[in-house]
Design a protein around this nucleic acid. Sequence first.
DNA 1: CGCAATTACTCAGGGCACTGATTAATTTAA
DNA 2: TTAAATTAATCAGTGCCCTGAGTAATTGCG
Lengths: 158, 158
Amino acid sequence: MAAVDLTTHPGHLARRLQQAHYLLWNTMVSEEITSPQFAVLNTLVAEPGLDQRTVGERVGLDRSTIAEVISRLGRRGLLDKVRDPQDGRRFLLRLTDEGLRTHRKLTVRTARMNQVFLAPLSAEEQSVFFDLLRRVSDAAEGLRNPTGRPAEPLAARS
Amino acid sequence: MAAVDLTTHPGHLARRLQQAHYLLWNTMVSEEITSPQFAVLNTLVAEPGLDQRTVGERVGLDRSTIAEVISRLGRRGLLDKVRDPQDGRRFLLRLTDEGLRTHRKLTVRTARMNQVFLAPLSAEEQSVFFDLLRRVSDAAEGLRNPTGRPAEPLAARS
DNA sequence: CGCAATTACTCAGGGCACTGATTAATTTAA
DNA sequence: TTAAATTAATCAGTGCCCTGAGTAATTGCG
């Protein structure tokens, strides 16, 4: 008793949605390159020479995660890191030819996958879907712990 | 050139939505218990004595992930595992008193958090939000690689 | 100028999520 | 009834995602 219906919890639905996407991506786009990795490639196609932190900001990955993703893409030879001569803290990132080729290939497959993923919705519903998701995400982003006060611990420790 | 607008990619939006939720959960609900962990507690409140695999099915976690989550909750003393006397492969799961207390506390906080999370949407929009997310997730779930054919590799290896 | 604050990146650590392989128990079918 | 197939759980491996702490370079202020 007192249990809740998880299908009315936005967080639960968000997680399921993301998992569903992950699985479809694996079957329809690539088992080698992940969706966040594609987002990074895409950002560097639009803006070559960006530094790591800025790329992370563009695609919505924190400093640690973007470092890992970049390192994997580098190991696979899809991008190059060079130290910024103007600012020795930064690494400037640029796709290799192989990286460009991969991006091109995945762009086509991703478009196909998105169609399949959104097929259950009508065109108007798809617009609403984008609008609602964007609005909720953007609003939550503005809430990032402005007070610096974390959630209270569960146990009132003696 | 040839770069795509990620905000029209449902997968990217799904990931951002989930991240936004993760962060809000950390500040408004708990830094100790995660949202998937709460989902497990909630399932066991509704159906005590379920086995591990079935709990995973209920909350949408695969065999490996549910095993880790269960093990963490067990270590924290929130649930008990006992071998099923009827079927020696299964472990039957049941919340401890501490587990029940934790679930009660989090239920209240989660309800508050959901309100904040969905605040940018009107009541009607919230219903649409739920409906669209459920429909897309459910449909994608039915697509789980029925052919058994994975995405082709990127490189046509020699 | 020189020191403090800021900034970019790295590292350690915890948790979620999947696949493929393995082990042990149960069920099915020959 | 015994061998084969199935099933529940574990383990190893990869990748995403976050925080907090640490290092090196740069910037800004007194």
